[in-house]
Write a protein that binds this DNA or RNA. Sequence first.
DNA 1: CAGGAACCGTACCGTACGGTACTGAATAAT
DNA 2: ATTATTCAGTACCGTACGGTACGGTTCCTG
Lengths: 211, 211
Amino acid sequence: MMLDSRKQPEFSTRQIAVLEEALRLLVAGGEKALTTAGVARAANCSKESLYKWFGDRDGLLSAMIAYQASKVRTLESDGERLTAQSLRERLETFARDLLAVLSGDVSLALNRLAIGQVSRESAKLGELLRERGRRQIDRRARALLDAGQRAGLLFFAEGEDTYRTLYGLIVSDLHVRMLLGEAPTKDTERRAERAVSAFLRLYGTEKIQAA
Amino acid sequence: MMLDSRKQPEFSTRQIAVLEEALRLLVAGGEKALTTAGVARAANCSKESLYKWFGDRDGLLSAMIAYQASKVRTLESDGERLTAQSLRERLETFARDLLAVLSGDVSLALNRLAIGQVSRESAKLGELLRERGRRQIDRRARALLDAGQRAGLLFFAEGEDTYRTLYGLIVSDLHVRMLLGEAPTKDTERRAERAVSAFLRLYGTEKIQAA
DNA sequence: CAGGAACCGTACCGTACGGTACTGAATAAT
DNA sequence: ATTATTCAGTACCGTACGGTACGGTTCCTG
């Protein structure tokens, strides 16, 4: 079960259809609804094919996570020169996107699945989710912060800590609360603005405080 | 299944022993290890007694959460006059305590259990955990923030938002990462200091910035 | 057209769990 | 001392799931 991402298209179209159906079942009914027989029935395929393609149930779960992660493609920010205004907008867009991702049906269902699977020794699911699920969006944010620093708009010593701070300001305990079943919030707008304002008060240079 | 907290001692000593054993099993092996037969065997009681006391398996899970929540007692902060120094110390103590609670074996196991249970209609577990698990520590922090404001050391308009900001600065995505299986961090000290410093830069008055 | 690979649908098996019933011992009540 | 209550221990039942095997169909290949 290598997770080298430099591989073939990873999944055939037929397998992708099956994975989509499996994700639909998972979102609808949680892990308990995700039985091999149920997936086979919903996807009009045989259990035998399921086991042939994914090995066993854990393989199916891993494939679902890998597939979902492969769908998340964050557009790389172009190298346009940052201004105080555009940096703030970029950060707010990032905040909104982050909240949207974390609030998504499929994301929540997969996180719940992986969390429920922890403490099973087979559980590379959590690790897999941490690695593949966040890398894209993390890198996008880190690049943005670095660009802000190069433009003289931000100042910080340790990029990783700074990013974690931004993340905490945006998300707070909202993610865990949603994982526990709370309905997704609707005021992502206000939340994003407040978080970015606070972040800029902490890490913005005089150059940006003036704006 | 009322959850009125103004009730009898809630659980008998025998039942508490059983709940302790059940928590031990849950921490050791996750939800799948928490079978009724297993609990009965580990606690030297019969399954029949289990069902008599807790109704069914869900009742046992709810009782475990209620019991664990009842154990968390945060000492109420005395009304001592706050100074810039003592407020900072109080906030850092709160941050350390919060991180310690969230990193605890039992807390993580129960959160994983409740999260895995979401999307079952029976699942009042998540709600129960949100309500009873956090109320104590939330109130303690809110009281501290209000005291800081009254002492002229903090300024904020909306207490709830301000508390959420503090929470986010302290925890960031650490809780979810631990829920996903990442080993608890060891540098709670540095984390607490950094979070409180950032928080005071955001919400401290001139009076405290000088210190 | 013949042979084979892929795959769907279903039937099947072993197991493990939630929940219930029963028995016998210990303790409390009368 | 006798009866009633509680509870541990065990055996049992129905169900549901993971995994495997098999028959039949389609489709591709030589």
